[in-house]
């Protein structure tokens, strides 16, 4: 009897080691794969904007992709914020507990179920012609186009967390504010938002983290140029999309450069998610 308990406990412990091994293995593989390119270019790999795979004149700098990633994600989060925040108030405050709220919530959840490639197709056939028609970009492939689709993709993540946090603000506090003569808008800005602040902030951090790593939809809409974009309506590339685009034909130093970009992406998303987690820990005490 006693033995079987020990065996089960050991098995469970060994299983937990799998997660650690997989993660450690990932770090190891990415780092060792990235070493050649860092040996060749050092820090210039991160700060240089030149990306030239021509044999004999090979130069790899990831700056255009780092900038492309940050720009698209930033546009996404800026566009996502008013929409997701309004929707959270709609579901969690204004129409709380009604049929209207549950239908809206379900529709927002459905956004999370659409595969990235389908967003890409929709962006390509619906959004891109619109951007062209508006004269913002000749081909419609741009940082902005990718950012808009990314914004839609991260809305469900930001909305669902923010809604939960808004619902958690105690009714006692809201009633106290109403009993002092506040309007609903004043209650929202003086009671709900200050009390839910850190949670709301975290939900956008995590949504930002998701935007950083999105690949397919961005690849299909960003235009895939290797240069630093001159503006948000210029084409560009993100770290994830350059890996997807150029992996098939890569070997040697170029492959190492792509792995190094994957390593950077891994580190950046890790940091962003870590920050989000820290905030949650700090405020949930």
């Amino acid at each position: 009897m006693f033995n079987s308990e020990r065996i089960v406990k050991t098995l469970l412990f060994l299983a937990s080691a799998v997660v650690i091994l997989v993660t450690a293995g990932m770090v190891y593989s990415l780092t060792s794969g990235a070493i050649p390119v860092f040996k060749e270019f050092g820090l210039r790999f991160i700060i240089s904007s030149e990306w030239n795979p021509t044999e004999g004149r090979e130069v790899y700098g990831a700056l255009p992709f780092i900038i492309g990633t940050l720009l698209t994600s930033l546009i996404a989060i800026i566009l996502c914020f008013p929409l997701a925040f309004s929707t959270s108030l709609f579901i969690g405050e204004y129409y709380r507990g009604t049929r209207m709220a549950s239908i809206t919530g379900t529709m927002v959840d459905m956004l999370a179920g659409i595969p990235s490639i389908v967003y890409g197709l929709w962006g390509f056939y619906v959004l891109r012609p619109l951007i062209v028609a508006l004269g913002w970009s000749a081909q419609g492939f741009s940082i902005f186009t990718a950012g808009v689709v990314l914004a839609i993709m991260i809305i469900p993540y930001a909305t669902s967390i923010t809604t939960e946090i808004i619902k958690m603000v105690s009714n006692d506090l809201k009633e106290a504010a109403y009993s002092l003569g506040a309007t609903r808008r004043e209650v929202i800005f003086n009671v709900i938002v200050p009390n839910a602040r850190s949670g709301i902030f975290t939900s956008y951090i995590l949504a930002f983290g998701r935007a950083l790593g999105e690949t397919m939809a961005v690849t299909m809409l960003i235009g895939n140029s290797n240069m630093i974009p001159k503006g948000i309506f210029d084409s560009g590339n993100t770290m994830a999309s350059v890996i997807a685009n150029q992996f098939g034909e890569a070997d040697g130093l170029k492959l190492s450069a792509l792995i190094a970009i994957a390593l950077l992406l891994f580190v950046i998303t890790g940091i962003i998610n870590g920050i989000g987690k820290l905030i949650v820990k700090k405020y949930s005490v």
Partner: peptide, 19 residues
């Protein structure tokens, strides 16, 4: 708004604004 300013209210559980 005006009514509630003229009539104050205190609740069962103390509920100062925590922020």
């Amino acid at each position: 708004i005006m009514l509630r300013r003229k009539i104050g209210m205190v609740f069962q559980r103390p509920n100062p604004f925590p922020t």
